[in-house]
Design a protein around this nucleic acid. Structure first.
Lengths: 333, 333
DNA sequence: CAACAGTCTGGGAACGTTCACAGACTGGAA
DNA sequence: TTCCAGTCTGTGAACGTTCCCAGACTGTTG
């Protein structure tokens, strides 16, 4: 009794055939206005909902896309950016009646599962998040030839996996210039991991502006965590006690750096200016509030979805998109 | 040529019938060891992967669960807790080979979409996140009689939607007691919205301990945002300038309160002690670092999944789960 | 030796769609 | 009038599974 109505029921109520109902559903050409109206009325009347499984079975399309989170487990607590990305993607896809399946790829078992899932034909496309350099899963996906895009470049696979991202390099330049214009003479940096695009490009931007003044001594590498910001800052102070500014490649690490500076008795920004990156929620809760670089994260997510949809719709090739960042001046620099 | 192998191909290679292959796949009784081995060998050999659509079509089961995010759009940027929840859920479900579909329910259109999706039989269960009091979508879900659970109580529907949550009330008591033991005499609070379980129960816990001393004058309502923490604190100071402690129902709001206190020239914790709630990443980046209440968020997510799986497996009724919180003493109180 | 319970296998039917094709009906052009 | 192109409709077949039933084969029991 609680059995859900099928296309047959609709056909019966509307007084037409299965075929005609199907044509209305997929708004094909060649349906008379009368039939169209009758079918739509019947659908509304009996509350018909198409069975996607049956449809997928014959069309070989699933109406879903899988989002793969590659961040290793320990880090995941700290980054508040995922929520925005996920929500934006879900909404944009929903506009097209495509649903978003989440998968994590923290270890090899996870990655195999993703591959199996995709190879099993359970998704029309793949949305990669925070993929690391040299990830074999990416190659497998390319091999399967499923539409795939990434938010943030996939290092070493930029030519096969299109992506959307913020302009990390120019953002880093903006911040570095800002520090120079504020009269800072000895500017250090704490980078992200050098197997991530943000890690690499934000350092490049820093070096672009500083040229030869960006000496080895003034560079420390972090791993995006607050803790690595703390320890990186400590090493910098030890090596170059007279630095008067530091560009930290993420707000969270910058929060760590601030703690170290405070503990060392350095005043911010009086003694040392601190610049962050991301404009995440952390930037406002530090003392002093962080001068940072805002990434248009929602826009980036939206563009990534756009690329993916284009590929799914059959585009041979799509161009990656880089969106501009903006300097947000607060009190730390 | 690139056609994926089907159960027929497996049967042919293994020299058995479709039926036997299917039995092996679903490890039914009554399969001879020889047949079993032959089938498994064939599957491995030709790289067969079961087609879930075909399976779902006959079993009426989808092997997926939908997670519904109900937070309205403006807020979503601020809460870093979602990532943890999502990942934990995805991993636990993956253990059972169930995939997680994300949907947002920010407005009525979204909510209708969720209903349609569920009514369409596209999910075996529903995982509710941050649902608000009086949400009609919840009633619709109950009506459909699909297994549904929530992370955090669904106000007014506690008896029909089982949930897992942290012990908000006891957590609030822990913090309030801590403030009293520190010798504070005039303790105020900034609550969450009173249509959320956290808003209600953290205030109750506060009142439990303070009894008649929890006067109206010492209570302000916020909406979980940093800004509401700032303004709430400002109103409290105006009304009760001699308060010497404040329990803020979330770390993020506490960060806002700290800013207001600083601007008003109050020292923390010397003049005013500040207690937060959540132990989110914000708690460590404030100055001073926040004394707060830790919620076992990953455990809560895990329990929620467990409840959902039990319901999906046919349990008539499952008991909601409340997990203990823990006081984390840092410098703000 | 007959009867029977238990184990195992094969194959038809069904799940709810889309697709391709055949054919009916229109109206206008030759 | 005849033909044809265009529009519209119905139906059989297919998609890849699971389910169920019939039946074959074992070994045990009376």
């Amino acid at each position: 009794m609680a059995k859900r109505p099928t296309i047959h029921d609709v056909a019966a109520v509307a007084g037409v055939s299965r075929g005609t109902v199907s044509r209305v559903l997929n708004d094909d050409r060649y349906v008379s206005p009368a039939a169209n109206a009758a079918v739509r009325r019947a659908i509304a009347e009996i509350g018909y909902i198409v069975n996607r499984n049956a449809r997928s079975l014959v069309t070989q399309r699933t109406g879903s896309v899988v989002m793969v989170l590659s961040e290793p487990h320990e880090k995941l607590f700290e980054d508040p950016n995922y929520s925005v990305t996920i929500r934006t993607a879900v909404r944009r896809l929903a506009d097209r009646d495509i649903s978003l399946v989440m998968m994590v790829a923290g270890d090899d078992g996870d990655r195999d599962r993703v591959i199996r899932y995709v190879r099993g034909g359970h998704a029309d496309g793949v949305f990669l998040l925070s993929t690391h350099a040299g990830d074999r899963m990416v190659d497998a996906l390319v091999d399967i030839a499923i539409p795939a895009v990434a938010l943030g470049a996939v290092i070493g696979r930029e030519s096969v996996i299109p992506h959307a991202a913020a302009d990390d390099r120019e953002g880093a330049r903006q911040m570095t210039r800002h520090l120079i214009e504020a009269g800072r003479k000895k500017i250090a940096t704490i980078t992200g991991p050098m197997d991530t695009p943000g890690g690499i490009q934000r350092l490049e931007g820093f070096a672009d502006v500083l040229g030869r003044k960006a000496s080895r001594k003034l560079i420390e590498h972090g791993d995006w965590t607050r803790l690595s910001g703390e320890s990186g800052m400590a090493r910098l102070l030890e090596r170059t006690p007279d630095l008067d500014a530091v560009f930290v490649a993420s707000d969270l690490m910058a929060a760590g750096a601030l703690a170290t500076l405070r503990a060392a008795g350095r005043r911010v920004p009086d003694d040392v200016a601190v610049g962050g990156f991301d404009d995440s929620s952390v930037a406002l809760s530090t003392h002093p509030p962080l001068t940072t670089i805002r990434q248009p994260l929602a826009d980036v997510a939206e563009e990534t979805v756009r690329l993916l949809l284009a590929l799914i719709d059959g585009a041979e090739h799509v161009e990656s998109v880089i969106l501009p960042t903006r300097l947000i001046v607060r009190e730390s620099a």
